[in-house]
Amino acid sequence: MKITQREVGNAVVLDLNGKLTGGPDAETFREVFKSLIDRGKKNIVVNLEKVSWINSTGLGILISGYTSVRRGGGDLVIMHASDRIESILYVTKLNLLFKSYESEESALTAFDEK
């Protein structure tokens, strides 16, 4: 799993590339989120466009990031989730936790609403 960060307006977009399956990815994510919070970055968009699939351990990684960001007073949303990922979020009821957007433009509006 490769993670690229870019700042867009008042948010940080994390572009993920690969399969979100846990294992070593979990530690990489923890470091990324710790670094973001240390730098005062509160609005996070996770771009899943290049993530082909996810398992329950990968969901755990996303939830861990979500709770870290929320504890710091921020929010985490996702964008460009494939049908496969959307269906997994739905059956695990995590669609109720993660706001999911079809475009970067709409994802960034999540932080304007506050």
Binding site: N55, S56, L59, G60, I61, I63, S64, Y66, T67, S87, I88, V91, T92, K93, L94, L96, L97
Partner: peptide, 19 residues
């Protein structure tokens, strides 16, 4: 019972049963 919404574990069986 399903896991708590922010629990990081416990969804494997849900996925296998649902699909």
């Amino acid at each position: 019972l399903p896991p708590e919404p922010i629990s990081e574990r416990g969804r494997g069986l849900m996925i296998m049963q649902a699909f």
